[in-house]
């Protein structure tokens, strides 16, 4: 067995054992949120880390996934297991429509166009009160399974943890399959030299759109899992600020790597909690940490670990 695989197995076992190790219930809650963010960050990484296009609409897509899954289960009475699968598809459809014009522009312009999309989604969620109940949000969103007290009781936080863990692992594996395939090579090629991609006979826009739509599906799925976990959603959670967190998760963890988003997701969920002591200075501190992180570890925690390993390795 290769060393990398052993490490992967250990990490997986750690995740499986985590609920037994955690004594404070609140940390289990945060871990669930972090796992949802792993899915979110893996999607963001596809478009940002591998394709080199910074998208600032992922939280908006998360919102579309969350609201569509919530509404389909409450208004249409569809089983939650179905809506969680349908929600990413609905999100993908939106991304397809949004992505086609957005991806005609390059670099920073793409970031700005997606930012605008997030704002539009936010405003629609806020004002389409008949459907979304506006600022007050939707509450009483059902959990998957057969309700409280069933054999597998999704109201039990541990159960929901394992549920989300499974999906996070599957989605990470899916991201791995994509980036290690020929598609991944083309995405990396787009990141390095987009103009040259056409001259090797590849229509770059198809792959950019693919990466964008897939990243949206990841976000939509994360949104659905979030909605059914919290049982309550309002537009606030899906604002631009959350999109920035997704970007940060990728940068801090390690852009263009598969482990980076996992680390980054836990980082963006747990760090603000640990900064609570600073009260209103929290955001300033948060910003400072981020500035320092991008200056001193531009390739994220994964890149830093890699550097340390090679330095340590050569010293021996």
């Amino acid at each position: 067995m290769k060393r990398g695989n052993i490490l992967l197995l250990i990490v997986l076992m750690l995740f499986v054992a985590l609920p037994q190790l955690i004594t404070v219930k609140y940390y289990l809650h945060l871990s669930i949120l972090a796992l949802i963010w792993v899915i979110m960050a893996q999607g963001q990484n596809l478009i940002q880390g591998y394709t080199g296009y910074v998208s600032i609409v992922q939280a908006g897509f998360m919102g579309i996934g969350a609201y569509s899954s919530a509404l389909m289960s409450t208004n249409l009475g569809l089983p939650v297991s179905a809506t969680i699968i349908l929600a990413p598809l609905v999100t993908a459809l939106f991304a397809l429509v949004a992505g086609y014009p957005s991806l005609r522009v390059k670099g920073h312009y793409f970031a700005i166009v997606t930012l605008a999309f997030n704002m539009v989604i936010f405003i629609v969620l806020l004002n389409l009160t008949d459907l979304t109940n506006g600022e007050a949000g939707l509450s009483g969103i059902p959990k998957p399974g057969n309700g409280r007290g069933a054999t597998i009781d999704f109201y039990d936080r541990q159960v929901y943890y394992y549920f989300v863990l499974t999906i996070a692992v599957v989605m990470t594996a899916l991201a791995a399959v994509i980036v290690r395939s020929r598609v991944g090579q083309i995405l990396l090629a787009i990141r390095q030299n987009e103009d040259l991609v056409a001259s090797v006979g590849v229509a770059a826009w198809r792959y950019k759109l693919f990466a964008f739509v897939v990243s949206a599906m990841f976000a939509g799925l994360a949104g659905a899992l979030y909605a059914h976990y919290q049982s309550f959603i309002n537009p606030e959670i899906f604002s631009v600020a959350q999109s920035l967190d997704a970007i940060l998760a990728v940068i801090i963890g390690g852009s263009g790597t598969l482990t980076g988003p996992v680390i980054g997701a836990f980082f963006v969920v747990f760090l603000p909690e640990y900064l609570r002591f600073a009260d209103s200075f929290r955001l300033i501190l948060y910003g400072l940490i981020l500035v320092l992180a991008t200056i001193f570890m531009p390739r994220g925690i994964v890149g830093l670990a890699h550097d340390l390993k090679t330095r340590f390795g050569s010293a021996r």
Partner: peptide
Amino acid sequence: LGCEGRRGVGPLAQA
């Protein structure tokens, strides 16, 4: 990567 334009199977299908 130079082969992409002339492959028999599309990359999405192969991925």
